[in-house]
Design a protein around this nucleic acid. Structure first.
Lengths: 206, 206
DNA sequence: TCGCAACTATACTATACCGTATAGTAATAT
DNA sequence: ATATTACTATACGGTATAGTATAGTTGCGA
């Protein structure tokens, strides 16, 4: 009998994933060698192959784990009960604040986007795990607040999250913050202002 | 004397870049071998090293070329003289239409984002070559149309382009279009509606 | 004490890589 | 004719890769 099939074994597994995270985030998928992962994890290489099918399996498991665990950090602590202005502001500030600080998350986004051609399922997993949840939550929130007079909640949710994601994209992921700076608070103010302002002429009339 | 130092030599160079494009876009930077590039370009490997310093130099030259040439395709044919609604709509439709069709451009975005950690200068080159130009053009356009009553042209330009870029990001680059579809025309309508609607309470008052 | 499961360390196979070297070809210039 | 330029084809050196094999170690239960 294994000493503790879900704790000792689980520990090695977690240890491997931790080492793999370091290397994959810094070197990318093709740039990562299993020897380096083994060294970073403090584990014999063959142990990795005991726990994971192959390099692709390790990568998949890693992304699945990180994807699942990161959601709460961004969106788990938002209360949808406050004033709309406050709700939107909280989400926006939390997301941008996280990205301003968390280099690991930035590297993670680079990795999953860069490999989305060869690992489409992982990219879709990410979409379902983060942006889609935000789209849905915001959509329902707008739906349940008819006083906001938002004609197309889904589209507005995309505009809101899209602005934030692209800010992260250009400023942090692609190193634009030094060559084209932009005050995040001003952006948030403007974005919320556009969304919550009364819309006298609905988009259908354009 | 070289037969035609800027045409014959230039042809080989272009031929190499064309082959490199194919392979780099499909295999990524680390996944690309110079032998494959040589084969795809129909060129001897050593000829590549006659024209380019090394793998990194070839990659850099490739990204610089594509970055420069793609801008016009998206933004070169826009006239800033029409009605604001038409101007914004043209830009948005052109960008989304291009992305809907051009798999090569999607792969290019994946590549430059994925390698932005190891090639920060290339990412910044891209920022300067496309989004920053759009931000500036839109900013000036808004500035020169005070009747639009846009309090913060820079921020609104970011919201506009950010929405479009993120749409490309989630729908095409990360394969979200099948699991979370969104009508691009509705998104464009909504986005332009928000921006061009009168803003009774400027963002400063929030 | 024995058996067993998980692990380590090292070496291996077979392949692939980058960048260079070598030898040779086609075309032009003098 | 000879030199030069741009190229091709092939092979090589040294390194690195994914994944496996082998031999040995540690710890635990019966």
């Amino acid at each position: 009998m294994t000493p503790s099939p879900d704790s000792t074994t689980g520990l090695k597994r977690a240890q491997i994933l931790q080492g793999a995270l370091e290397i994959f985030l810094r070197q990318g998928y093709e740039g990562t060698s299993m020897d380096r992962v083994a060294a970073a994890a403090g584990v014999s290489k063959i142990t990795i192959y005991k726990h994971f099918e192959d390099k692709e399996g390790l990568f998949t498991a890693l992304i699945e784990q990180v994807t699942a665990q990161r959601f709460n950090q961004v969106f788990g602590t938002i209360s949808l009960d406050d004033h709309p202005d406050q709700v939107l502001r909280q989400i926006a500030q939390k997301f941008l604040a996280l990205l301003a600080v968390d280099d690991e998350y930035v590297a993670f986004l680079r990795l999953i986007i860069g490999e989305s051609g060869r690992f489409p399922a992982l990219a879709q997993l990410f979409i379902r795990s983060l942006p889609q949840k935000v789209w849905r939550s915001l959509g329902h929130y707008f739906d349940s607040h008819p006083d906001l007079a938002i004609a197309h909640p889904d589209a507005v949710a995309r505009i809101f999250t899209g602005t934030l994601l692209s800010y992260a994209m250009t400023q942090r992921i692609m190193h634009g913050q030094h060559i084209a700076p932009m005050d995040p608070d001003l952006l948030i103010d403007c974005l919320i202002g556009l969304i919550l302002a009364p819309q006298p002429t609905p988009p259908e009339n354009l």
